[in-house]
Design a protein around this nucleic acid. Structure first.
Lengths: 342, 342
DNA sequence: TTGAAAGCGCTACCAG
DNA sequence: CTGGTAGCGCTTTCAA
């Protein structure tokens, strides 16, 4: 609870001098400095966050947030946007503004352009769902060198200098789906899996986790087939239908990413909703409806709201304190949702 | 983003006057007042929380937090304490101190005494897990009239004037257990239930919710017997053992409150851990171990950490803004935990 | 009934 | 290299 003022008084110097020492700005007489540091240590000085925040108001801090377009087939990101907007509003009274951009899932150029535009606008921090590509990493690394903090959201990216990752532990998400499937099938069953693409790291990790758990705890369960739907409902419909038609022994379905509606339509068209145990991912409105209707039994969710709000909080804290969070990985909770706790 | 200063300038008065009008303190010339209100409305003035917080530091705000004793058999509350301590530390830099007290689950006098002692200490707000009794309600009502805000935690209490409730929706918690049990038993099974006491509202609500869901969605499932263990592991052991011995047809067990360890020991002694599907409540260390060991299949949790931290935040916000939160009920999330997402 | 000023903790800037 | 001062938004006290 020591303040700069107290330290100044005790040391017989002005607050400015204490500030210079404690925040390493400008030069100070070594003796004075030593004395100040000693007193600060003695009093266990920790800067008061409110004081810092108040004095930052006039700086007009600006953040950028680039997210995968909400106009694609995956409405998941709308919930992320809700989180962004809520936190943006909260930060408004500190004079912070947030500029949102949308970019495509698998298209590098637009994302690079968005980043450049935001830099040109003079942002003080950036949060984004990065396309997993070396050119993006390099670009982010350059932001890092410019002193602009970057937070990766939903999907992490290596060699980018990002100060933190906020998102799901996809492996554990898959494991949870596997564990739950085992419980619901009582350890026996033949499982079909539908996912976006094995090339997307998060998707791959999910089926890995899923398979690992079955192998470890459910020797009598097997994964019959894994199909890709590229997060597209139409494609999802067809690949699921074909898979189920070819494998009548399948009695469990794990939909590991988007395309939930398409897959379920296939199930319904084949009249298999009673027979199949279905676990999906996330809880967009259509998924919620399908759970309510009893088609989907459970969904594994990843707190999209937090994925929108937390990154902005991390950036803001970084601006305030000028240091990275203690841990650079913020895994969102892995939530199991069924009809009763939606 | 309008500030008091701006309004004062525009109105041609001092900040003090604007403050008096906007916060209804002291008398102000009606004309001046009208003018100030008009400008404030025009600029959509909202007080800056940081400014308010900063100026509240010197007031030495003090909160009390009364919680069920952590020395009883239910270690659940230790996690609540962790939440209290974390938030206390966070509030420290605003000059806030928090005084913890422990009182017994079913003993009125000590809780009344604790409340009186805290009042004597001059607390500015109180959070507590209230014993559900009219004498407690009355006492809390008197705090309300003294202008001391009260938040009920974990268990709500009527006619007490509390400004908010933070805790689980017990009915929904029971429903979730029911829904999950149905999924894991594939709609067929005979269930035994163990709970603390039917006289405790939260416990009763849980079995109500549980039973409702079975009735609604699982016509082929039945609740065979409901036993009380008074949250005591030894008692839990005996009643569970007896129940299972008398009813060999039971193949599912719902442990709705504490006494999880005792109940599971009974199951293990009878060698029924493979046969029974077990759903418990909360995730204290022993429960976590039992889930890891595969004895318990799933547990329905109620975010104890939040139950410790959120009430203090609500009290603090109330002190800052002098008004109640928009909603007076803060349900914690109902989390389904299995081995893979513990 | 109102204005002026000090203070909460920190930062920034100017003058020396 | 250092002190002094003003300012961020709000509250409170003293004086008029």
């Amino acid at each position: 609870m020591a303040t700069i003022k107290q330290i100044a008084n005790l040391a017989g110097v002005s607050r400015g001098t204490v500030d210079r020492v404690l925040n390493n700005r400008g030069l100070v007489n070594p003796e004075t400095e030593a004395k100040i540091r000693e007193i600060a240590a003695l009093l266990q000085y920790t800067p008061n966050k409110i004081g810092k925040t108040l004095s930052i108001i006039k700086k007009n801090i600006k953040f950028g947030f680039i997210i995968f377009s909400s106009t694609t087939s995956n409405p998941y990101f709308e919930d992320v946007v809700t989180g962004i907007d809520a936190k943006s509003k909260e930060l408004e009274e500190f004079g912070v503004t947030v500029e949102k951009r949308f970019s495509d899932f698998d298209n590098i150029e637009p994302q690079l352009n968005s980043i450049d535009e935001l830099i040109a606008q003079g942002i003080n921090g950036l949060a984004l769902t990065p396309v997993n590509n070396p050119r993006i990493s390099e670009k982010l690394l350059s932001l890092h060198h410019m002193g602009i903090p970057v937070v990766a959201v939903n999907s992490d990216i290596d060699h980018s200098g990002r100060i933190a990752y906020v998102g799901s532990n996809h492996t554990q998400s898959g494991e949870t789906a596997g564990g739950l499937m085992r419980l619901m099938k009582n350890g026996h069953g033949n499982i079909g899996v539908v996912l976006g693409s094995k090339d997307i790291r998060g998707h791959y990790e999910r089926i890995q986790g899923f398979a690992d758990i079955l192998e470890k705890y459910a020797p009598d369960m097997r994964i019959i087939e894994v199909q890709e739907n590229h997060d597209d409902d139409i494609e999802s419909f067809y690949v699921t239908k074909e898979m189920l038609a070819h494998h009548p022994e399948i009695d469990g379905l794990y939909i590991a990413s988007a395309g939930v509606y398409g897959a379920c339509r296939a199930v319904m068209q084949l009249g298999l909703e009673k027979k199949l145990t279905i676990i999906s991912s996330d809880s967009v409105p259509m998924t919620v409806k399908l759970i309510r209707d009893g088609v989907i039994d459970a969904s594994i969710c990843q707190q999209p709201f937090t994925q929108g709000s937390k990154p902005l909080q991390i950036l803001f804290d970084y601006i305030i304190s000028q240091k990275k969070p203690e841990t650079d990985i913020f895994f969102t909770d892995i939530e199991i949702k069924i009809r009763e706790n939606l």
